[in-house]
Design a protein around this nucleic acid. Structure first.
Lengths: 240, 240
DNA sequence: CGCGGAGTTGAGATTGTTCAAGGATTGTGG
DNA sequence: CCACAATCCTTGAACAATCTCAACTCCGCG
């Protein structure tokens, strides 16, 4: 997906996504872009189910490949997922905001991350990371709304639109199609729905012509229509 | 409730609750306690429905009297409440964490607040406020859990236990009884339930001997039992 | 070739919503 | 002091949304 768009000799393609993510959160100087591309730390590999962040870790990390989530375990083998962590995302704690392990960050697929704490010294990068932190906070409120105020159809649609948007922002949505490497049960754990009902709702979205799906991907061919249909507003409108 | 416990000549009793709230979040020096008691700013009065925080306000405030909430409006006259703001609570933005109006803070009853931004220069107060901010963040995750993973009975019980605990921490729960000056519809807007179902659930809690209610107050006579029954764990257990 | 994981579908039970109505309480004006 | 309106609480009955259980398919993989 990425290797085709090589304008300059990029040595570490796996840092391209965090770079794009930060760049679309705030302007970066050429120095800062270079600092990101030159990150020399070893990558950390997590198997599905492993923790992306060690319990005491208060650093910052980029997600390079694979999906993760923030969640809290429930009794039995149930859990509530609070947010999905996508390739390119920044995870961990900003220095000023020592919000320790109020939730667990866990890999949902095979995933790789890299330590990015050193980059906080660059003002543009710090500003961009702060902006991303605020976006994540806003998405948490979106999630509260999905769980508390939306029915299954609206909730699933909202979530897919959010994930679609997050992919599109960093150039990972070709033709309204984006990667979705986790199963329907994970959608259920996020939305507070049973796997069966998630399935029925996806079927309904498909029947309405709003969704196409294949192994490991979704596509929202009429994303604009769907957004209007379920009242999905991209980022702001809460300013005021 | 408060005026009886006057050991030293306290001139401004209305600052007693924020003081207690901060004190139970982190140790305060005598100077810091005095600084809180001497807050000279004018009190701000909000009628039910008014905003507690002006849209651009990025300061810190104490809630002195009355209840408020954080919420987002929905289409029509519906809304989703994210959290309740109680007397003694700190609201607003910490300096390092410029998370602007991702939600609205609104009065649910007649309420008074006071500007507390000046107190941030005291390190003990700043630390306590940071700890309270983290508690609030944790309660947001609790709320996600209630909405996503709990049924009505568990959700209502959890929420009442939380509010009971928050009152008890600052000495406002006489005999497991605490103030609850908002109606059942507000509980519904918080829990994503209809007013009718909230009512039926409260009735059920009462029938089970877990709840007593009167105009403007609730009581949880067997809070321990109820907490065990619905799996309510006070603050931590997420550390790790 | 068979096995396991993920997606799909049906039928019945459970939970929660809506609409509608009736009681209780309180504040207000006559 | 009483009538009245407003607000909140309570209850019933029909309806809709969602869950559970159980089966069955499809496909990739050893």
């Amino acid at each position: 997906l990425l290797s085709t768009s090589s304008s300059s000799p990029v040595r570490k393609g796996y840092l391209e996504l965090p770079l794009r993510r930060l760049a679309c959160a705030g302007p970066l100087s050429a120095d800062e872009e270079a600092a990101i591309r030159d990150l020399a730390h070893p990558r950390r590999i997590s198997a599905r189910g492993d923790r992306l962040l060690a319990p005491g870790d208060d650093g910052l990390h980029f997600v390079l490949e694979g999906w993760g989530c923030q969640m809290r375990p429930l009794d039995g083998n149930r859990r509530q997922i609070f947010s999905f962590l996508l390739p390119g995302d920044v995870i961990g704690c900003l220095p000023g905001d020592p919000a320790p392990s109020l939730s667990q960050s866990v890999a949902l697929t095979h995933a790789t991350t890299i330590d990015a704490s050193a980059l906080i010294v660059y003002p543009g990068i710090k500003a961009a990371m702060t902006a991303l932190h605020i976006s994540a906070q806003s998405r948490l409120f979106d999630q509260l709304l999905r769980l508390g105020a939306h029915g299954a159809y609206e909730g699933v649609a909202h979530l897919l639109l959010e994930i679609y948007t997050r992919h599109a922002e960093i150039g990972l949505a070709e033709d309204s199609r984006f990667s979705f490497p986790v199963g329907q049960e994970r959608l259920g754990e996020m939305l507070g729905l049973s796997e069966v009902h998630v399935n029925r709702t996806l079927t309904r979205l498909r029947a309405d012509g709003h969704l196409a799906a294949g192994p490991g991907w979704f596509s929202l061919p009429r994303a604009e229509d769907l957004a209007a249909r379920v009242g999905f507003t991209p980022s702001p409108a809460w300013m005021a």
